[in-house]
Design a protein around this nucleic acid. Sequence first.
DNA 1: AAATTATATTAAAACCATTCTAAACTGTTG
DNA 2: CAACAGTTTAGAATGGTTTTAATATAATTT
Lengths: 139, 139
Amino acid sequence: MTTTVEFINKLRNSGLRPTKQRIKICEVLFNKETTFHFTINDLVKIIETEANEKISLATVYNTIHAFEKKGYLKEIPIDSNQSYFDTNVTDHHHFYDISEKKLIDLDEVDVGPINIKKSIPGKKIKSVEVLVKLDTDNQ
Amino acid sequence: MTTTVEFINKLRNSGLRPTKQRIKICEVLFNKETTFHFTINDLVKIIETEANEKISLATVYNTIHAFEKKGYLKEIPIDSNQSYFDTNVTDHHHFYDISEKKLIDLDEVDVGPINIKKSIPGKKIKSVEVLVKLDTDNQ
DNA sequence: AAATTATATTAAAACCATTCTAAACTGTTG
DNA sequence: CAACAGTTTAGAATGGTTTTAATATAATTT
């Protein structure tokens, strides 16, 4: 349980003004027992339902991108034209359930160490992401 | 070097009518020494330049999706709103150069075996894809 | 080889996630 | 509280992708 004051401090410490909208988004995203995955549309719906407040789509995009840049969110690449975000920012990987279009966390331990043996001159590795696609097992 | 007749047979054997447009796309995609990565826009440009022919965008999308479904192409998931395709359909992974927006193949050997230790009941693993993001190494 | 049927191509419109714009608003600082 | 910089907003714009419905082409039948 994080208090509103703590979110305000977190925002201020990140150089982000603690506006009403940003605090609301913090509460929706970071005041949960578990981390979760969401799309921008999911988030807008949660805010409008749970908080019964209107928020501009542009603000949601701005805020999510600001949070991503600060490292409070991660974007998960999936072969979709929609962006998925994750409130779990620790190093981990994902299952993607194709039929249900859902993401499931996969701990580093579940995948094992990945040692990239090739390197490109002048470039350094920023991240290593594993995406395991799942199909229904009908046999 | 694959002849036009071979492409026609390949198409027909796949249940795809060998139209002028599909044959042209086969020639652009599969008559190269090496495999490569492309976006739909790249492909349209290649066709219009190299072949000096007009082709409808819709046809390109239709054909690429048909080829993907048949397993002649793979889509590479990147956190972008643009789809990247790969004419290399063997099991392998990718570097993604963030600044140059380019994909580089990464053999299975360069990554090592990945053993997923977690499983989801009723689901089976369809694919395991590793995406290694690269940044410019300026230090 | 003509007629029929099924499938493919096309230009243009529609779609939809995301970004941009520029005006109104709000948090911060002195 | 005044002034400024940063933020929100509705609506327009953007751009990749899909749909539409008419036309064209390949395959099949006669």
